[in-house]
Write a protein that binds this DNA or RNA. Structure first.
Lengths: 154, 154
DNA sequence: TCGATTATCCGTAAATTATTCAGTTATATC
DNA sequence: GATATAACTGAATAATTTACGGATAATCGA
């Protein structure tokens, strides 16, 4: 395949996407290889950039950041300057966990994490709504989580 | 605070959200505590559910799953049965990484990861569009990634 | 098909790291 | 101010990671 990965690599990546806090021994058992081989493969997957990083996933309710919004943003104009300004400014806001430029009927989608509606209101008035590049913002809030996965299908 | 976390805990969580692949010694240095204390705190944060899990974050280009879509879904009806059916079925699709029930002008938002447009087309025809509970689907594709973070602001 | 090259694999040993523990210091309670 | 509770520390031990030398298997050109 074009990625240069074999079945064992894929299996290791599937395992690590779900739980990266297990020993090489545990992973080695699951992929039927020795610890040394498993370790060498994981090392290679990191060095070659397939694994970008390892992170802790927090419970957003317990840490009180469970008020999640998705905002669909339209820009006023689509000049290079306007786009550049929006991208640079929006990335600075810590409440904005994700921002993607999109095809279709809106320009950007944002995932915003705050403590509660008061906290969101503050973010909106003090930060997001101050960006002059924005024309309209259509925001919806998460009511319930049906599926929340960081693992890509492999 | 209501979470029961102090400044040291918050700092540890901030660090682990960015990089959970470092030694306790490295973290201990950053929070100005001993290794034993740091270890005990991290253990407690896991046991108490603040840290749900530790995962590897992959490069979606390198693994060829960089064709990302966000779909806004309207259901035909909002009866308990219809909602239940949609939630159960959509969660089974491996291409659907995330699904949230939302307030506002649409019912659900989905994040879908596929290899390319052909792969998406297959997913759409064979899986998503077969769900009888769905009324309309409005899909936009990611053109570029401005910010992509798994870390909540703390 | 043969031999040479390359890649993959494994067991072992050394280095690093995680984990436990006993004793100490700080903090809160009455 | 005495007591109880929680948090901290350094040091010992257990477990894991990592590097290394050599064996095995796969690949490829002649």
């Amino acid at each position: 395949m074009a990625t240069g990965l074999d079945d064992i690599d894929i299996k290791i990546l599937q395992i690590l996407q779900k739980d990266a806090a297990q020993s090489n021994e545990a992973i080695a058992t699951k992929v039927n290889k020795s610890i040394a081989t498993t370790h060498a493969r994981i090392k290679r997957l990191k060095e070659n950039g397939f694994i970008k990083r390892v992170v802790a996933v927090l419970d957003n309710r317990k840490i009180e950041r469970s008020h999640i919004a998705f905002s669909l943003v339209h820009l006023k104009s689509h000049t290079k300057e306007c786009l550049k300004e929006f991208k640079e400014e929006v990335a600075k806001f810590e409440e904005v966990m994700e921002c993607f430029q999109m095809t279709g009927t809106f320009d950007f989608i944002l995932r915003i994490a705050t403590r509660d509606m008061d906290d969101y209101n503050l973010f909106y008035n003090e930060k997001l709504a101050t960006l002059s590049s924005i024309s309209t913002i259509q925001t919806s809030f998460v009511m319930s989580e049906i599926k929340s996965d960081t693992a890509y299908p492999l």
